[in-house]
Simulated assay, not measured.
Amino acid sequence: MTYTFTIDERLGIRLPLLEHSWENYSKVTQELILAEWETIRGKIPDRIKELENEINDRQSQLYREEDFERSCELNSEISELASIINDLWIWYRADNRITKKSHF
């Protein structure tokens, strides 16, 4: 039974891609998956901090921006970065057991 961790370009982290249900993996394989996930999971707060810095940069640009269209673009970028942060927190807080196929 195979599994892999694939990069999610939007989130900037690798996510598990399980080809079978969690229960069909041996305990040894489950432990390997969880060990790799914990390594990745431990990097999520640093990724969030990077994105928060990008938001702060965009907000600073927005504060100085006089062009309406560019202001809208900056607001949209800030919104997308905040959405990514939200998704990263969901992954970070996810139960330590991966229980279904992940296709994100």
Rank of each mutant, 00 (worst) to 15 (best):
P16W: 03
A94T: 11
I13D: 03
I90T: 15
S26Q: 06
R10H: 07
E38T: 10
E23I: 04
F68W: 12
N96L: 14
E31Q: 13
L18I: 07
D95K: 10
G12S: 09
T99K: 08
E19P: 03
K27M: 13
L81T: 00
S83E: 12
R10L: 08
F68L: 15
D46M: 14
L11F: 06
S102R: 10
M1D: 10
T6Q: 13
R64F: 12
S83P: 09
E19R: 09
C72M: 15
S60R: 13
Q59V: 07
P16F: 05
E19N: 09
R14T: 02
S79Y: 11
K27Y: 13
D46C: 02
L74M: 06
L51Q: 12
Y92L: 00
Y63E: 13
I78K: 01
Q61D: 05
Y3L: 05
N53H: 08
S102F: 15
V28P: 02
P16E: 02
N86S: 12
G42N: 12
I78T: 01
W22E: 08
I48S: 09
E66M: 04
F104R: 14
I33F: 07
E19A: 14
G42P: 03
E19Q: 13
I78A: 08
I90C: 10
Y3D: 07
D87C: 06
E73M: 11
F68Y: 12
R58A: 08
D95M: 02
I33A: 06
L34W: 04
W37E: 03
E23M: 00
V28D: 09
Y63P: 06
L88Q: 03
L88E: 01
S21L: 15
